[in-house]
């Protein structure tokens, strides 16, 4: 280890890792380049596009969704990160949100998709029946260049509908 490196533990999608990284490296760089976790994507690396969104428990309150590119990785020491790989079932089973993104055509090039699915999943956890305005308010940290967003809104609405129907007695 060189003097400008930091060593720490990090749990990613349930797997514990020992990480050695430069002190200034972002959580996104550590995930992608050090640990080979490629679900979070690099779109802008300055917190604008949301392609790197992950759900993280960083020992600073409740777990929440954030841009991995903005988090100094070592501040996540001892914490845990759930990427897109933690959404959906163990055998490649799709979550209701993932299923809806596919069915409604919310995926084109797909580079934004993991981030959108992550943010939309979080939204539906806290608000199972969001209005269109609430969907937009929750997702404007995620940029999409292909779809024009119409199918993404449709997918979130469809997932919410499915979830409500399944939960109905």
């Amino acid at each position: 280890m060189t003097p400008d490196e930091v060593a720490f533990e990090l749990t990613v999608d349930g797997v514990r890792h020992e990480v050695t990284a430069r002190w200034s490296e972002s959580l996104l760089t550590v995930l992608r380049d050090r640990l080979g976790v490629r679900g979070p994507k690099t779109g802008c690396a300055h917190g604008r596009c949301g392609a790197c969104a992950v759900r993280a428990d960083l020992g600073d309150g409740a777990p929440h969704v954030l841009c991995a590119c903005l988090v100094p990785a070592a501040t996540a020491a001892g914490g845990s990160v759930a990427t897109i790989a933690s959404i959906g079932g163990p055998d490649g089973e799709l979550s209701d949100v993932q299923e809806a993104f596919l069915a409604e055509g919310a995926v084109q090039c797909g580079i934004c998709t993991a981030g959108f699915v992550t943010a939309a999943t979080e939204l539906l956890e806290t608000n199972p029946d969001p209005t269109r305005t609430e969907i937009e308010a929750a997702l404007y940290g995620n940029l999409c260049r292909c779809t024009g967003y119409g199918r993404i809104v449709a997918a979130v609405e469809a997932a919410a509908r499915t979830r409500r129907q399944q939960e109905a007695p």
Partner: peptide, 11 residues
């Protein structure tokens, strides 16, 4: 847990 951090502190 932070294992070692000469230029990083997590007080």
């Amino acid at each position: 847990m932070l294992l070692a951090a000469p230029c990083f502190a997590l007080p």
